Amino acid sequence: MSEQSTLLLKRQLKELSKNPVEGFSAGLVDDDNIFEWEIVIMGPQDTLYEGGFFRAIMTFPPDYPLMPPKLKFTTEMYHPNVYPNGEVCISILHPPGEDKYGYEQASERWSPVHTVETILVSVISMLSSPNDESPANIEAAKELRENYPSFKKKVQRLARRSADEF
């Protein structure tokens, strides 16, 4: 499987290099490792994250695309769907099949049809519309609901800092 995964990832990287997608850039952390990509997501316009440049690492398993990659922000991120350690928690990055907690439909979870592009478009969408129903960062979700001005100030400060560090 690993050889097929390598070929697929090389093809996706080549496609993104030839036809960049607005809102993010992607490349290899190390040219000798196709399974680890460095991602930069530009904070989406008209969101609290606007103007920010958020770095992340996307790590692909050897059995990709049967199993999803992991995406972890290396830039500090404050968002209900991002764990405090930076790991992104969205349905399409959850293993395929039924959710043992019954929260997600199997159709919402990972499917081999997803690509780096569809994953990152989903992450950009997540930044635009946080889901505070099933948070990875409980503190961020609570602050978003109960003290929006404070949440907004914190996120905008992080976006400015990320732009300064970029």
Rank of each mutant, 00 (worst) to 15 (best):
M1A: 15
M1N: 13
S2D: 05
S2F: 02
Q4W: 09
S5H: 05
L7H: 10
L8G: 00
L9P: 00
R11D: 07
L13C: 10
L13E: 09
K14E: 14
K14C: 12
E15R: 12
E15Q: 15
L16G: 04
S17F: 14
P20S: 12
P20M: 10
G23M: 10
G23Y: 09
F24I: 09
A26V: 14
G27P: 12
G27W: 09
L28S: 15
V29E: 13
D31R: 11
D31H: 13
D31F: 15
D31V: 14
D32G: 15
N33R: 11
N33D: 15
I34Q: 08
E36M: 13
W37S: 02
W37Q: 09
W37H: 10
I39V: 13
I39S: 07
V40E: 11
I41L: 15
M42F: 15
G43Q: 06
G43Y: 02
P44T: 15
P44W: 09
T47R: 04
L48H: 03
Y49W: 14
G51S: 08
G51E: 08
F53L: 12
F53G: 12
F54H: 09
F54D: 04
I57W: 05
P61R: 02
P61I: 00
P62H: 09
P62W: 05
Y64I: 00
P65G: 08
P65R: 11
K70G: 00
K70F: 08
K72P: 05
F73S: 01
T75C: 05
T75H: 11
N81C: 04
V82T: 04
V82S: 03
P84E: 09
N85Y: 06
N85F: 06
E87A: 12
V88R: 00
C89G: 07
C89Y: 06
C89L: 05
I90N: 03
I90E: 02
I90F: 03
I92R: 02
I92K: 08
L93N: 04
E98F: 08
D99H: 05
Y101W: 10
Y103A: 11
Y103G: 07
Y103M: 11
E104V: 01
E104N: 08
E104G: 01
Q105H: 10
A106D: 12
A106E: 13
S107T: 10
S107G: 05
E108R: 05
R109V: 04
S111I: 02
V113T: 12
V116M: 04
E117K: 13
T118L: 01
L120M: 11
V121R: 07
S122H: 05
V123S: 04
I124M: 15
S125K: 09
S125H: 13
L127V: 07
S129I: 09
P130A: 04
N131G: 03
A140D: 00
A140R: 01
E143Q: 12
L144R: 02
R145E: 07
R145A: 07
N147A: 06
Y148W: 05
S150D: 05
F151C: 00
F151G: 01
F151L: 03
K152W: 01
K154F: 02
K154M: 01
K154G: 06
Q156N: 07
R157N: 14
A159P: 01
S162E: 05
A163P: 01
D164K: 15
D164N: 12
D164I: 14
F166T: 15
F166M: 15
